[in-house]
Amino acid sequence: MPAFEFFQTVPITDFLFGTEWAPLFADPEFGVLPLVSGTLVITGIACLVALPIGLLLTAMYLSEYAADKTRRTLKPILEILAGIPTVIFGFFALEFVTAVLLKNIWPQTEVFNALSAGLVMGVMIIPTVASLSEDAMSAVPRGLREGAYALGSSRRQVTLKVVVPAALSGIVAAFVLGVSRAIGETMIVAVAAGLQPNLSLNVFEGMQTMTSFIAAAGSGDQPTGSIGYQTIFAVGALLFLMTLVMNLFSIRMVRKYREVYE
């Protein structure tokens, strides 16, 4: 409800299309775009890391290439990685990825930057993406693989042309879950990407995401009912809407492209 009260004060167009975000200042600005862009940029980087490594390499390797024994050892280790507290990932991003790696490669990197947060967030969601898509791929009936092998396909062809298409709905579900975790992730971005709203695509600068704004504003002392308090709910509602749209979109994609094998 505070979200409704918020939109009675601030026109929704100002909220959605404004490019300045300074709701808690004496002269407030309520353009949410910097937060949205920060969220999307960091999530995008995370996807660029998690999609190829988690899905293509890890899941395909575990499901189709690894020996049974290797898989039974590696998969639990992978799943343990999913249990590491995100604040630890956050400091890893700040103290190692930024300070040791990025500063040396690209000295102009700011202390708080989107790149390290995105990279580490990608690493964080790899276990989720890899483990769930491996489940989906392992669930593809053996008969399909055998049929493909019997036609003289190589292992790569069987994996890419038969197993992955047949497991597509599960793989997309795994990926959507991973992305949802990335969008909703707060600690890594709050620690490593800074708290400065920044409408920019320069990944070496700090950015604030929607979640890290909510965390920062929520832990500050906003009086209940004030505009700052209502802002938190408005941003939260938008975040919810974004994940909802993304889920609906992916369900449509899955319906369109999946291959039903039962």
Binding site: P141, G147, Y149, A150, L151, V162, P165, E259
Partner: peptide, 25 residues
């Protein structure tokens, strides 16, 4: 396996179109 093909006990068409099933090989 390209020269010695195989048909299995349980029919195992790919979950693709009829055309793509034949065209796969």
């Amino acid at each position: 396996r390209r020269r010695v093909g195989m048909v299995f006990q349980k029919p195992n068409p790919f979950p693709k179109s009829i055309f793509d099933n034949i065209a796969y090989g």
